[in-house]
């Protein structure tokens, strides 16, 4: 029997904009396939052995929540998580979590808040929030998935700029993306993915959810026979309705 262990970083502090839906989706899609899945919430102060996890999720938070965990994350986990990501750990980070994986966040008052530098990106605080539905063409995928689009909802003031060490997750068809300037959205380095897409992201992008699960299963169990297909009628409809509306 296949099994997966998922780490959910700071669920009590970083839980904004329905990002919990991503955890519900990963868990259900494993259970429907008979994959034994365990989700551990990681609290501030907790010591983590990243090798014991197959997939890590790090969502966005309110400013106050982020302030409570930023030091703990950077100081306690910075070096070890960066090494694990270099080694191929599968990870999805959204919004605040995405920003903390980068080099730094430059606030509009000129303060430079450090990230862990696991992704070659940096973020600059902006005046106007970038808010609305977003549609991207998913360019980062490795396999020939049927659907090449991702839909979600963004709400961020930070503008993120990509370095040469990452690929964008996709190209913006509608919305703002990383910075509202260069049409990129998100960043991918090895198996680590960061982006601004709430919505929740994974429930209505089941092809992306399964992409992450495949990467995690392969890493733990070696070459696997591929995921058992599920009846994704409702999920695909939720995805296609928004592609049609925004496209």
């Amino acid at each position: 029997m296949y099994q997966l262990a998922i780490a959910h970083l700071y669920p009590e502090q970083m839980n904004i904009y329905g990002d919990r839906g991503n955890i519900l989706t990963l868990r259900q899609r494993c259970q429907w396939r008979g994959i034994a899945v365990r989700v551990d919430g990681i609290k501030p102060g907790q010591v983590v052995d990243w090798a014991s996890y197959d997939l890590v999720f790090f969502g966005g938070g309110q400013d106050s929540g982020q302030a409570l965990i930023a030091d703990d994350f950077v100081q306690r986990h910075g070096a070890s998580l960066k090494a694990a990501i270099d080694d191929g750990l599968v990870l999805l980070a959204i919004c605040g979590g995405y920003q903390l994986l980068g080099h730094y966040f430059l606030t509009h008052t000129g303060d430079k808040l450090p990230g862990i530098g696991a992704l070659d990106v940096h973020t600059v605080g902006g005046e106007k929030r970038l808010i609305g539905n977003i549609l991207i063409e998913w360019t980062g995928q490795k396999r020939g998935a049927v659907r090449r689009t991702l839909v979600g909802f963004e709400n961020h003031s930070g503008r993120t700029y990509l370095g040469t060490g990452v690929q964008p997750l996709g190209l913006v068809q509608r919305g703002f993306g990383n910075n509202g300037e260069d049409r990129t959205e998100g960043a991918v380095y090895r198996n680590a993915h960061g982006c601004y897409m709430h919505g929740s992201l994974l429930p209505k992008n089941p092809h992306f959810a399964d992409h992450l699960l495949s990467l995690a299963l392969e890493r733990r169990h070696g070459a696997v026979a591929g995921l058992v297909p599920l009846d994704d009628g409702l999920e695909v409809q939720a995805h296609d309705v928004m592609v049609e509306r925004l496209g």
Binding site: L24, Q28, P203, K204, D231, L234, E235, Q237, A238, V241
Partner: peptide, 20 residues
């Protein structure tokens, strides 16, 4: 409607009981 249908499915409502 389609988002809500997915939400209910993942909440454990059997899909055949959900009509859009």
């Amino acid at each position: 409607a389609a988002d809500m249908a997915v939400r209910l499915k993942y909440a454990g409502v059997p899909p055949e009981r959900i009509e859009t």
